[in-house]
C-alpha cells in the first residue's frame, strides 16, 4: 500500500477516472428508477440492472371510427407496408422508451395510410405484476388524434 501511495501522477489521474466511472455506475440506477416511474421506460434496460426483477408488457392498438359509431381496431393487414412497418417499430420501441416515445408520429403515418379517416385513437395498455396480489394489473392510455386540415389556398 505504501508503494501505491507513491503512484505516478498519470496513475493517480487514471485512478480518479476509474472512481468517477464507478460512482456514476453506482448512482445511475437511482435515476433509472425515476425514469421508470415517471416515463414508464423498460425497467430491464438503461443500466438500472433490474433485469429479472419485475415484469412489464405493452399492448398497442390503433383504433378508428366504426361505421355505426364508436371505435374499432384498425385492420392492420389492410395497411400499406410503410404503415405496418411504422406500427411494428412503435410496438418494438415503445416498451423500452415508454412515454418518451409518444404515438404522434405513428398517428401521422396511419393518417397517411388511411386518407379516408379524419380521426383515430392509439390505445396503449401497460401490464405489470402487482407485488401485493401477484396478479396482472394494467394502466391504459388512449391518445385521440384528429387529422390536421391543410390551409385552404387564397
Amino acid at each position: 500500500m505504501k508503494a501505491r501511495s507513491k503512484a505516478a501522477p498519470a496513475s493517480v489521474a487514471k485512478a480518479r477516472v476509474l472512481l468517477g466511472i464507478l460512482c456514476s455506475l453506482a448512482l445511475w440506477p437511482v435515476v433509472q428508477r425515476q425514469l421508470v416511474t415517471r416515463f414508464e421506460i423498460d425497467p430491464w434496460k438503461f443500466a438500472g440492472f433490474a433485469m429479472y426483477a419485475t415484469w412489464t408488457g405493452t399492448v398497442v392498438v390503433p383504433l378508428e371510427p366504426a361505421p355505426g359509431g364508436g371505435l374499432t381496431p384498425m385492420d392492420e393487414t389492410a395497411l400499406p407496408a410503410f404503415a405496418r412497418d411504422a406500427l411494428h417499430r412503435f410496438r418494438r420501441d415503445r416498451p423500452a422508451l415508454g412515454k418518451l416515445l409518444p404515438p404522434d408520429e405513428l398517428a401521422q403515418t396511419l393518417f397517411a395510410a388511411r386518407p379516408e379517416i379524419d380521426g383515430l385513437v392509439v390505445a396503449i395498455q401497460r401490464m405489470q405484476l402487482d407485488p401485493k396480489t401477484a396478479r396482472i394489473i394494467s394502466t391504459k392510455q388512449t391518445r385521440p388524434f384528429v387529422r390536421e386540415k391543410a390551409p385552404e389556398s387564397q
Partner: peptide, 11 residues
Amino acid sequence: WAGLQKLLYGH
C-alpha cells in the same frame, strides 16, 4: 444493484 432492484420491486 441487481439484488437491490429485486428487493425494491418486491416480487
